[in-house]
């Protein structure tokens, strides 16, 4: 494995216990220049994971707590009149950083949500008629409470599509929980943490992802996976071409993290659930985003 990556994984695993797969997915998502949505009940370590990621990668970090009265300006920033100079000065909002933790994104109004999501898509924000680029790399890590809780605005499908991956953290297993209860508080660990790589190294890794080879045979497999969601009557809407591209990019990042320069079907299978379940809309029974779907698809599509 590429060395800084191994170190980063090690460090994150030292803080967020027993979540190796999710941590790898989060890191892969970041390497693929995608944004990550973490969905789970409060208190399972979503914020800790986001914070740790930012620390380990040596990136600037801001947290935005989404509430129902949050306004777009609270995210993007405002221009304020300066009496001394007689002009307006722009005060950047919390989004002008490298890692943004958008906590409980589904609590905010759709207006605030879309302000964030536009920034995610464009990599820049327009405030007061002026376009301002966001820093580089730019990585949004949003958390969301499961939609069955009260007082939330679920993200519409079009906006869910902006997230490369969606993962669930889930409760820690007994051993990890025991260690957690016994060990040093996580906050203390975070303050001691040193970055595992420089921003230049991260940039380099991100560039390498695009160079990971995707063979004809693998493209055929990707197509077969996409096709089954489009033809199957179990899904109201199949996967979009954008979803296909996302799947490819995520698999490339995953392969790179395995220290490989080409994508295997296993890489696609590893990331499939995280990449597609929030984009699939089942018809009839089954609620949106049931992670079971990915497993079922994998069992049905032979590797060409």
């Amino acid at each position: 494995m590429t060395d800084p990556l191994a170190r980063a994984l090690d460090q994150i695993n030292g803080v967020v216990l027993g979540k190796d797969h999710q941590i790898r997915l989060a890191l892969a998502c970041l390497l693929a220049r995608g944004h990550l949505l973490i969905e789970d009940v409060p208190g399972v370590g979503k914020t800790t994971l986001a914070h740790t990621l930012a620390m380990v990668l040596g990136l600037g970090f801001h947290r935005i707590q989404f509430t129902s009265d949050l306004l777009p300006a609270d995210i993007l920033g405002v221009a304020i009149y300066q009496r001394d100079s007689g002009g307006f000065t722009f005060h950047p909002g919390p989004i002008f950083t490298q890692v943004v933790l958008a906590d409980e994104i589904n609590r905010a109004s759709p207006k605030a949500q879309s302000a964030l999501l536009e920034a995610m898509e464009e990599g820049q924000v327009s405030v007061e008629g002026e376009t301002r680029p966001l820093p580089h790399p730019f990585f949004v890590l949003a958390t969301q409470n499961p939609s069955e809780q009260i007082g939330v605005f679920p993200l519409p499908e079009s906006q869910l599509d902006r997230f490369l991956m969606r993962i669930h953290l889930g409760y820690p297993d007994p051993q990890a929980e025991r260690e957690l209860l016994r060990g040093t508080p996580r906050r203390t660990l975070l303050t001691r943490m040193a970055p595992a790589m420089t921003p230049a190294q991260l940039q380099d890794l991100q560039d390498q992802v695009a160079g990971v080879q995707v063979s004809d045979a693998l493209v055929a497999y990707l197509q077969a996976l996409l096709a089954v969601t489009r033809q199957d009557s179990r899904f109201a809407v199949g996967l979009s071409p954008r979803a296909g591209l996302a799947l490819k990019r995520a698999a490339q990042a995953w392969a790179l993290m395995q220290g490989r320069r080409f994508v295997l079907p296993e890489d696609v299978q590893a990331v499939l659930s995280a990449v597609v379940t929030h984009r699939l809309k089942p018809s009839g029974e089954g609620f949106q985003g049931d992670p079971e779907w990915a497993g079922r698809i994998l069992k049905e599509v032979p590797i060409p």
């Binding site: 295997l264 079907p265 296993e266 299978q269 994998l298 069992k299 049905e300 599509v301 032979p302 590797i303």
Partner: peptide, 8 residues
């Protein structure tokens, strides 16, 4: 099974 990759 033919849905399993070589490394798996």
């Amino acid at each position: 099974p033919d849905t399993e990759g070589p490394l798996d």
